[in-house]
């Protein structure tokens, strides 16, 4: 486990869940994480996923992102050269105390999944009024 930010948000290695089929190798999507004001935003590269097949869940203090990778080649195709991953995407992020689990927003665009996590009140930046 690589600790990202004082136990608020941690990155974990992939732990294949019970749903992971042995026939479908798991790919770890490359991710960026940004912190901005009241939120963290995770961006995951998931080209070839279908929006309706992506699952984003919070289970046992973990944010779990999963999606099957849609086969990209037609029936009659002969593969001459292959680098693109097949199977499924999966990545887990450990959530620290400061994340509001009930306010998770996700959108998928151009092959990138953006997950927005809000900080709990205790972690939000507060402006101190000078008296």
């Amino acid at each position: 486990m690589t600790q990202l930010n004082n136990a608020i948000l941690k990155k974990s290695d992939v732990e294949p869940g019970p749903g992971a089929s042995l026939r479908a190798p798991l790919s770890v999507p490359a991710s960026d994480i940004s912190e901005a004001g009241e939120a963290y935003v995770l961006y995951l590269d998931m080209p070839g996923a279908r929006k309706e097949a992506i699952s984003v869940t919070v289970v046992d203090e973990m944010l779990v992102v999963r999606a099957p990778i849609t086969p990209i080649h037609g029936e009659g195709a002969t593969i001459l050269y292959r680098e693109i991953r097949t199977g499924a995407y999966e990545r887990r992020f450990a959530l620290g105390e400061g994340i509001d689990r009930k306010n998770v927003d996700a959108r998928y665009e151009n092959g990138v999944l953006a997950v927005r996590l809000l900080k709990t009140e205790a972690l939000k930046p507060k402006e101190i009024v000078i008296k």
């Binding site: 080209p47 080649h73 002969t78 001459l80 680098e83 693109i84 092959g111």
Partner: peptide, 22 residues
């Protein structure tokens, strides 16, 4: 970017992963 190259009787198809690219 990673890519695949395939062929069928009539075509050569190249697929490249370009997430986040407009």
């Amino acid at each position: 970017p990673p890519l695949d190259v395939t062929e069928n009787k009539e075509e050569v198809v190249v697929v490249a992963e370009l997430p986040g690219v407009k």
